[in-house]
């Protein structure tokens, strides 16, 4: 059980996700999708229940877990006053990545030299999203948690995001995606959870087994 203030935002979430799976989390607004992702990231405390992510206990080892998580939330987590390149280089240093990895990630998401020198506050929403995705490639976390990752992206951007998700999944990265906008990614290890009223009410994995 997870509370946001006094509000019980997540009250019944039982799931077992395997490495390399791509999990679509669907549900109406306020269902608890974002809360579920933030819980898996180790950013929210669990009031009751048990949970393990990458063998880290969600009650006692949240700090240790976080370094292995890549979270793309509603907000991009970038510094608006810094340029794209400065943002990426700062976070790359924090993640222990080098300039070559930064250049590769920028190239993958079409963040060319001209965009690299633009302050983030002057970017479009889609360009900010691409910059955030570039940070996922730079960090190389074991789990990607994507909250409405397609918001603001054009068709080209969506294709790039899908392509990066599939590549990551093939390399063994587990991806959880909360989104209204898609029904399918195209991964062979795809699965859909439906969340409503703070509970997981449907799981395609269990449905198919049943």
């Amino acid at each position: 059980m997870v509370f946001l203030g006094q509000f019980p935002a997540l009250t019944g979430a039982t799931m077992n996700i395997r490495q390399g799976e791509v999990v679509l989390i669907k549900g109406p607004n306020g269902a608890g999708k974002s809360t579920l992702l933030r819980l898996c990231a180790g950013l929210l405390p669990m009031r009751s229940g048990i949970g393990t992510v990458l063998d880290f206990d969600l009650r006692t080892q949240r700090m240790e877990l976080r370094a292995h998580i890549g979270l793309l939330g509603h907000r991009t987590g970038l510094y608006p006053d810094l340029t794209v390149s400065e943002n990426l280089k700062f976070w790359a240093s924090a993640y222990g990545a080098n300039d070559i990895e930064v250049d590769k990630a920028m190239a993958f998401f079409g963040l060319n030299d001209r965009l690299g020198s633009v302050q983030v506050q002057n970017l479009s929403e889609g360009q900010r999203r691409r910059t955030s995705f570039a940070l996922l490639l730079i960090k190389r976390p074991s789990i990607w948690l994507l909250d409405e990752p397609y918001a603001g992206l054009d068709s080209n951007g969506r294709e790039l995001v899908n392509s990066s998700i599939l590549q990551a999944s093939e390399l063994g990265t587990t991806v959880l995606i909360a989104s209204h906008e898609i029904d399918k990614i195209g991964s062979t290890q795809e699965r859909t959870l439906f969340v409503k009223g703070g509970r997981i009410v449907s799981d395609s994995d269990q449905d198919s087994e049943g």
């Binding site: 950013l43 979270l71 939330g73 907000r75 987590g77 940070l135």
Partner: peptide, 17 residues
Amino acid sequence: DVETSDSAIDRLMLSGI
């Protein structure tokens, strides 16, 4: 404000720093 305006604090907490 630098850390909270666009939730950079979340990214900092997930960075391993």
